Simulated assay, not measured.
Amino acid sequence: MILHASCVAHRGRGLLILGASGAGKSGLALEMMALGAALVADDRTALRCEAGAIIADAPDSLRGLIEARGVGILRARAHGPVELALAVDLDRAEPERLPPDRRFGLFDGDLPLVLGAGRVHLASMLLQYLDSGRADTELRDS
């Protein structure tokens, strides 16, 4: 399955970045890369289910490339396939200060979901989530 999404990896855990065109998927990926994450895929992400895990990778034609709006297509070190641990939706803003355990259904499973539209410091929060999960929910994602 090819999804209109970007993906980064941090310490072996993948983040699927969802949103409409212009929502900031590539911008968030670039910001996270500047903080130590690695590019898996930009704009189009290939997904497969493997032994109950959801694996993300880049289509060969886009591997190691990321769009920087107003600058051009940039080269980046390609990470390769990664198991997804989290998804963020850049089209929807989180209305709750301490949100419930939201989920994004994919294949026969689901991923923890963060609603990230307009969120300040989102890249840092997502990197910390990938590192350690949430303390205020059952850690089904760790």
Rank of each mutant, 00 (worst) to 15 (best):
M1A: 13
M1C: 04
I2A: 05
L3F: 04
H4V: 10
H4A: 09
C7W: 03
V8T: 08
A9Q: 07
H10W: 15
R11Q: 14
R13K: 15
G14T: 03
L16G: 13
L16N: 10
L16C: 12
A20S: 15
S21A: 15
G22S: 12
A23K: 12
A23S: 15
A23M: 10
K25W: 06
G27T: 12
G27Q: 11
L28H: 00
A29K: 04
L30Y: 01
M32H: 11
M32G: 13
M33C: 06
M33G: 06
A34K: 12
L35Y: 05
L35C: 07
A38H: 08
A38F: 00
V40W: 05
A41V: 12
D43N: 10
R44H: 15
R44Y: 14
T45Y: 07
A46D: 09
L47M: 03
R48K: 08
C49A: 13
C49W: 05
E50M: 07
E50G: 00
A51I: 02
G52N: 02
I54G: 02
I55C: 07
D57T: 12
D57L: 11
D57F: 12
D60M: 03
S61F: 08
L62D: 10
L62A: 12
G64K: 05
I66W: 02
I66A: 00
E67W: 13
G70T: 05
V71A: 13
V71L: 14
V71D: 03
G72I: 06
G72Q: 03
I73R: 01
L74D: 00
L74G: 03
R75Y: 02
R75L: 10
R77A: 14
A78N: 04
A78S: 12
A85F: 08
D89L: 08
R92S: 06
P95H: 08
E96F: 11
R97D: 11
P100C: 08
P100D: 15
P100Q: 13
D101M: 10
R102Q: 06
R103F: 00
R103K: 07
G105A: 15
F107H: 07
F107T: 03
G109Q: 07
D110N: 14
L111I: 07
L111W: 11
G116Y: 04
G116T: 04
G118R: 05
G118E: 08
R119C: 11
V120F: 10
H121I: 02
H121D: 14
L122A: 07
A123E: 02
A123H: 03
A123K: 02
S124L: 12
S124A: 15
L126I: 09
Q128F: 02
Q128V: 09
Q128H: 12
Y129Q: 11
Y129L: 14
S132F: 12
S132G: 09
S132V: 13
G133F: 01
R134H: 11
D136L: 07
T137E: 07
S142L: 12
S142I: 07
